[in-house]
Protein backbone atom coordinates (compact mmCIF):
# COMPACT_ATOMS: atom_id res chain seq x y z
CA UNK A 1 0.00 0.00 0.00
CA UNK A 2 1.37 3.36 -1.05
CA UNK A 3 -1.57 5.30 0.26
CA UNK A 4 -0.95 6.49 3.77
CA UNK A 5 -3.69 6.64 6.34
CA UNK A 6 -4.69 10.24 6.74
CA UNK A 7 -7.13 12.02 9.04
CA UNK A 8 -8.74 15.04 7.40
CA UNK A 9 -10.11 18.00 9.34
CA UNK A 10 -13.64 16.78 8.63
CA UNK A 11 -12.72 13.33 9.94
CA UNK A 12 -11.26 14.89 13.06
CA UNK A 13 -14.36 17.00 13.69
CA UNK A 14 -16.70 14.11 13.15
CA UNK A 15 -14.69 11.86 15.42
CA UNK A 16 -14.40 14.54 18.07
CA UNK A 17 -18.18 14.99 18.30
CA UNK A 18 -18.81 11.26 18.42
CA UNK A 19 -16.20 10.72 21.12
CA UNK A 20 -17.54 13.62 23.17
CA UNK A 21 -21.05 12.23 23.01
CA UNK A 22 -19.90 8.77 24.05
CA UNK A 23 -17.32 9.59 26.71
CA UNK A 24 -17.67 13.25 27.64
CA UNK A 25 -14.04 13.82 26.69
CA UNK A 26 -13.52 16.89 24.55
CA UNK A 27 -10.47 17.43 22.39
CA UNK A 28 -9.45 20.97 21.51
CA UNK A 29 -7.91 21.74 18.12
CA UNK A 30 -4.53 21.79 19.84
CA UNK A 31 -4.91 18.04 20.50
CA UNK A 32 -5.19 17.27 16.80
CA UNK A 33 -1.79 15.64 16.54
CA UNK A 34 -2.37 13.53 19.65
CA UNK A 35 -5.77 12.35 18.40
CA UNK A 36 -4.70 11.71 14.79
CA UNK A 37 -1.75 9.66 15.90
CA UNK A 38 -3.87 7.37 18.02
CA UNK A 39 -6.61 7.07 15.43
CA UNK A 40 -4.05 6.01 12.83
CA UNK A 41 -2.61 3.52 15.30
CA UNK A 42 -6.05 1.92 15.75
CA UNK A 43 -6.92 2.09 12.04
CA UNK A 44 -3.81 0.05 11.40
CA UNK A 45 -4.28 -2.31 14.34
CA UNK A 46 -7.83 -3.12 13.22
CA UNK A 47 -6.96 -3.36 9.50
CA UNK A 48 -9.70 -0.86 8.76
CA UNK A 49 -7.82 0.63 5.81
CA UNK A 50 -8.91 4.21 6.29
CA UNK A 51 -10.76 6.54 8.62
CA UNK A 52 -14.14 5.80 7.17
CA UNK A 53 -13.82 2.06 7.64
CA UNK A 54 -12.56 2.56 11.14
CA UNK A 55 -15.29 5.03 12.08
CA UNK A 56 -17.93 2.58 10.86
CA UNK A 57 -16.40 -0.06 13.12
CA UNK A 58 -16.46 2.34 16.08
CA UNK A 59 -20.01 3.45 15.45
CA UNK A 60 -21.61 0.11 14.54
CA UNK A 61 -19.63 -2.65 16.27
CA UNK A 62 -22.18 -4.55 18.31
CA UNK A 63 -20.12 -5.10 21.44
CA UNK A 64 -18.44 -1.68 21.38
CA UNK A 65 -15.03 -3.27 22.06
CA UNK A 66 -13.16 -0.98 19.69
CA UNK A 67 -14.54 2.12 21.36
CA UNK A 68 -13.21 0.77 24.64
CA UNK A 69 -9.81 0.01 23.14
CA UNK A 70 -9.64 3.50 21.69
CA UNK A 71 -10.74 5.14 24.95
CA UNK A 72 -7.93 3.28 26.63
CA UNK A 73 -5.27 4.84 24.47
CA UNK A 74 -6.90 8.28 24.37
CA UNK A 75 -6.76 8.56 28.14
CA UNK A 76 -3.58 8.42 30.12
CA UNK A 77 -4.30 6.51 33.25
CA UNK A 78 -1.31 6.76 35.49
CA UNK A 79 -1.72 6.33 39.19
CA UNK A 80 0.40 8.02 41.86
CA UNK A 81 0.03 9.39 45.37
CA UNK A 82 -2.20 12.48 45.70
CA UNK A 83 -3.31 12.26 42.09
CA UNK A 84 -6.25 14.64 41.62
CA UNK A 85 -5.59 15.96 45.09
CA UNK A 86 -8.46 18.45 44.90
CA UNK A 87 -10.82 15.55 45.52
CA UNK A 88 -9.07 14.58 48.74
CA UNK A 89 -9.27 18.22 49.79
CA UNK A 90 -12.95 18.10 49.00
CA UNK A 91 -13.26 14.96 51.11
CA UNK A 92 -11.76 16.47 54.27
CA UNK A 93 -12.99 20.06 53.85
CA UNK A 94 -16.49 19.53 52.49
CA UNK A 95 -17.78 15.95 52.33
CA UNK A 96 -16.80 14.57 55.71
CA UNK A 97 -17.86 17.67 57.69
CA UNK A 98 -21.28 17.42 56.03
CA UNK A 99 -21.52 13.67 56.64
CA UNK A 100 -20.53 13.72 60.31
CA UNK A 101 -23.13 16.39 61.04
CA UNK A 102 -25.81 13.78 60.34
CA UNK A 103 -24.09 10.73 61.83
CA UNK A 104 -24.78 9.32 65.28
CA UNK A 105 -21.68 9.98 67.40
CA UNK A 106 -20.63 6.38 67.87
CA UNK A 107 -21.04 5.25 64.31
CA UNK A 108 -18.26 4.44 61.89
CA UNK A 109 -17.49 6.21 58.66
CA UNK A 110 -17.03 3.97 55.68
CA UNK A 111 -15.02 4.87 52.60
CA UNK A 112 -14.56 2.66 49.54
CA UNK A 113 -11.80 3.02 47.00
CA UNK A 114 -12.44 1.07 43.81
CA UNK A 115 -10.50 0.27 41.71
CA UNK A 116 -7.69 0.46 44.21
CA UNK A 117 -5.07 -0.52 41.65
CA UNK A 118 -1.69 -0.83 43.38
CA UNK A 119 -2.90 1.09 46.42
CA UNK A 120 -1.89 4.69 45.74
CA UNK A 121 -5.46 5.96 45.98
CA UNK A 122 -6.62 4.27 49.20
CA UNK A 123 -3.32 5.06 50.93
CA UNK A 124 -3.61 8.67 49.74
CA UNK A 125 -7.04 8.82 51.34
CA UNK A 126 -5.65 7.34 54.56
CA UNK A 127 -2.76 9.79 54.57
CA UNK A 128 -5.07 12.69 53.87
CA UNK A 129 -7.43 11.76 56.65
CA UNK A 130 -4.70 11.40 59.24
CA UNK A 131 -2.85 14.53 58.18
CA UNK A 132 -5.56 16.97 57.15
CA UNK A 133 -8.82 16.01 58.79
CA UNK A 134 -8.85 17.37 62.35
CA UNK A 135 -11.91 15.29 63.28
CA UNK A 136 -10.10 12.01 62.67
CA UNK A 137 -9.53 11.92 66.44
CA UNK A 138 -13.28 11.63 67.04
CA UNK A 139 -14.36 9.17 64.41
CA UNK A 140 -13.62 5.61 63.44
CA UNK A 141 -13.10 5.21 59.73
CA UNK A 142 -13.25 1.98 57.76
CA UNK A 143 -11.33 2.24 54.56
CA UNK A 144 -11.97 -0.54 52.09
CA UNK A 145 -10.05 -0.83 48.85
CA UNK A 146 -11.04 -3.22 46.10
CA UNK A 147 -9.86 -4.26 42.70
CA UNK A 148 -10.70 -7.00 40.24
CA UNK A 149 -7.06 -7.97 39.82
CA UNK A 150 -5.64 -10.17 42.60
CA UNK A 151 -2.08 -9.66 41.43
CA UNK A 152 -2.33 -5.90 41.83
CA UNK A 153 -4.04 -6.33 45.21
CA UNK A 154 -1.00 -8.23 46.42
CA UNK A 155 1.19 -5.33 45.34
CA UNK A 156 -1.16 -2.91 47.09
CA UNK A 157 -0.90 -4.84 50.36
CA UNK A 158 2.88 -4.78 50.13
CA UNK A 159 2.73 -1.03 49.64
CA UNK A 160 6.08 -0.51 47.91
CA UNK A 161 6.34 2.39 45.48
CA UNK A 162 8.78 3.99 43.09
CA UNK A 163 10.20 7.47 43.53
CA UNK A 164 8.00 8.62 40.69
CA UNK A 165 4.87 7.38 42.39
CA UNK A 166 5.50 9.32 45.61
CA UNK A 167 6.95 12.47 44.04
CA UNK A 168 3.86 14.59 44.73
CA UNK A 169 3.84 13.84 48.45
CA UNK A 170 5.10 16.56 50.78
CA UNK A 171 8.64 15.62 51.85
CA UNK A 172 7.80 15.62 55.51
CA UNK A 173 4.87 13.30 54.99
CA UNK A 174 7.00 10.93 52.95
CA UNK A 175 9.62 10.90 55.67
CA UNK A 176 7.20 10.17 58.45
CA UNK A 177 5.04 7.54 56.82
CA UNK A 178 7.34 5.67 54.44
CA UNK A 179 10.56 3.79 54.81
CA UNK A 180 13.22 3.40 52.14
CA UNK A 181 13.73 -0.18 51.07
CA UNK A 182 17.05 -1.68 50.05
CA UNK A 183 16.15 -1.52 46.39
CA UNK A 184 15.55 2.22 46.63
CA UNK A 185 11.77 2.11 46.78
CA UNK A 186 9.42 3.58 49.35
CA UNK A 187 7.25 1.37 51.49
CA UNK A 188 4.29 2.82 53.35
CA UNK A 189 4.31 2.19 57.10
CA UNK A 190 2.66 -0.84 58.62
CA UNK A 191 0.09 1.36 60.36
CA UNK A 192 -1.39 2.21 57.00
CA UNK A 193 -0.95 -1.20 55.48
CA UNK A 194 -2.91 -2.70 58.32
CA UNK A 195 -5.71 -0.19 58.34
CA UNK A 196 -6.65 -0.34 54.69
CA UNK A 197 -8.68 -3.46 53.97
CA UNK A 198 -8.01 -4.82 50.50
CA UNK A 199 -10.44 -7.14 48.74
CA UNK A 200 -11.18 -8.52 45.31
CA UNK A 201 -14.37 -7.22 43.73
CA UNK A 202 -15.74 -7.28 40.21
CA UNK A 203 -18.09 -4.30 40.04
CA UNK A 204 -20.02 -5.87 37.17
CA UNK A 205 -20.81 -8.94 39.21
CA UNK A 206 -23.84 -8.50 41.51
CA UNK A 207 -22.78 -11.47 43.62
CA UNK A 208 -19.53 -9.63 44.39
CA UNK A 209 -21.01 -6.24 45.21
CA UNK A 210 -24.00 -7.50 47.20
CA UNK A 211 -21.99 -7.43 50.41
CA UNK A 212 -20.66 -3.93 49.94
CA UNK A 213 -23.17 -1.65 51.58
CA UNK A 214 -23.36 1.35 53.87
CA UNK A 215 -20.58 3.53 52.45
CA UNK A 216 -20.47 7.25 53.08
CA UNK A 217 -18.01 8.04 50.31
CA UNK A 218 -16.89 6.06 47.27
CA UNK A 219 -13.93 6.91 45.11
CA UNK A 220 -14.40 5.33 41.71
CA UNK A 221 -12.03 7.21 39.48
CA UNK A 222 -11.17 6.49 35.88
CA UNK A 223 -13.00 3.21 35.68
CA UNK A 224 -16.50 3.84 34.31
CA UNK A 225 -15.10 5.46 31.22
CA UNK A 226 -13.75 2.09 30.10
CA UNK A 227 -17.07 0.26 30.17
CA UNK A 228 -19.69 0.18 27.43
CA UNK A 229 -22.98 2.07 27.94
CA UNK A 230 -24.97 -0.70 29.51
CA UNK A 231 -22.23 -2.05 31.77
CA UNK A 232 -21.46 1.34 33.19
CA UNK A 233 -25.09 1.91 33.91
CA UNK A 234 -25.08 -1.37 35.84
CA UNK A 235 -21.92 -0.42 37.68
CA UNK A 236 -23.36 2.97 38.60
CA UNK A 237 -26.39 1.10 39.88
CA UNK A 238 -24.20 -1.12 42.06
CA UNK A 239 -22.40 1.92 43.43
CA UNK A 240 -25.75 3.54 44.19
CA UNK A 241 -26.70 0.51 46.28
CA UNK A 242 -23.37 0.55 48.05
CA UNK A 243 -23.88 4.12 49.28
CA UNK A 244 -25.82 5.30 52.29
CA UNK A 245 -28.58 7.78 51.46
CA UNK A 246 -26.82 11.14 51.19
CA UNK A 247 -23.48 9.41 50.47
CA UNK A 248 -21.06 10.74 47.88
CA UNK A 249 -19.25 9.36 44.89
CA UNK A 250 -16.12 10.90 43.36
CA UNK A 251 -15.31 10.11 39.73
CA UNK A 252 -12.15 10.90 37.77
CA UNK A 253 -11.69 14.44 36.50
CA UNK A 254 -12.60 13.58 32.90
CA UNK A 255 -15.62 11.53 33.95
CA UNK A 256 -19.21 12.53 34.52
CA UNK A 257 -22.40 10.74 35.47
CA UNK A 258 -24.07 12.73 32.70
CA UNK A 259 -23.49 9.95 30.15
CA UNK A 260 -24.43 7.18 32.55
CA UNK A 261 -27.37 7.67 34.86
CA UNK A 262 -29.67 10.19 36.50
CA UNK A 263 -29.72 8.30 39.81
CA UNK A 264 -27.36 10.77 41.48
CA UNK A 265 -27.62 14.45 42.30
CA UNK A 266 -24.89 16.78 41.10
CA UNK A 267 -23.31 18.63 44.03
CA UNK A 268 -20.85 21.47 43.69
CA UNK A 269 -18.31 22.06 46.43
CA UNK A 270 -15.53 24.66 46.40
CA UNK A 271 -13.01 21.98 45.43
CA UNK A 272 -14.93 19.70 43.09
CA UNK A 273 -18.14 18.43 41.52
CA UNK A 274 -19.32 15.35 43.38
CA UNK A 275 -22.34 13.07 42.92
CA UNK A 276 -24.68 12.38 45.79
CA UNK A 277 -27.19 9.63 46.37
CA UNK A 278 -30.38 11.45 47.32
CA UNK A 279 -31.46 11.28 50.95
CA UNK A 280 -34.32 8.86 51.52
CA UNK A 281 -37.14 9.69 49.14
Amino acid sequence: MVDETRITTENFNKFREFFYRKTGIQFEDSKRYFVDKRLIERIEATDSGNFRGYFTLLRFQSGGEELQALTNIMTVNETYFFREEYQFKCLVNSLLPEIVKKKPVDSTLRIWSIPSSSGEEPYSIALYLTEYWPDIAHWDVELIASDIDTRILKEARTGKYSKRSVQHLPADLLRRHFKRTQDGEYQISDDFRQTVEFSRVNLSEPADTRHYRGFDVIFCRNLLIYFDDLSRQKVADALYDALNPGGYICLGHAESMSRITSLFRVRKFPEAIVYQKPEAT
Partner: peptide, 14 residues
Amino acid sequence: EAINGIEALEKALT
Protein backbone atom coordinates in the same frame (compact mmCIF):
# COMPACT_ATOMS: atom_id res chain seq x y z
CA GLU B 1 -22.41 23.59 25.21
CA ALA B 2 -23.81 20.61 27.08
CA ILE B 3 -25.33 17.42 25.67
CA ASN B 4 -27.93 16.77 28.35
CA GLY B 5 -29.42 18.10 31.55
CA ILE B 6 -26.86 16.54 33.86
CA GLU B 7 -23.88 17.92 31.99
CA ALA B 8 -25.66 21.27 31.77
CA LEU B 9 -26.12 21.33 35.52
CA GLU B 10 -22.44 20.52 36.05
CA LYS B 11 -21.54 23.49 33.84
CA ALA B 12 -24.10 25.79 35.42
CA LEU B 13 -22.64 25.02 38.85
CA THR B 14 -19.11 25.74 37.68
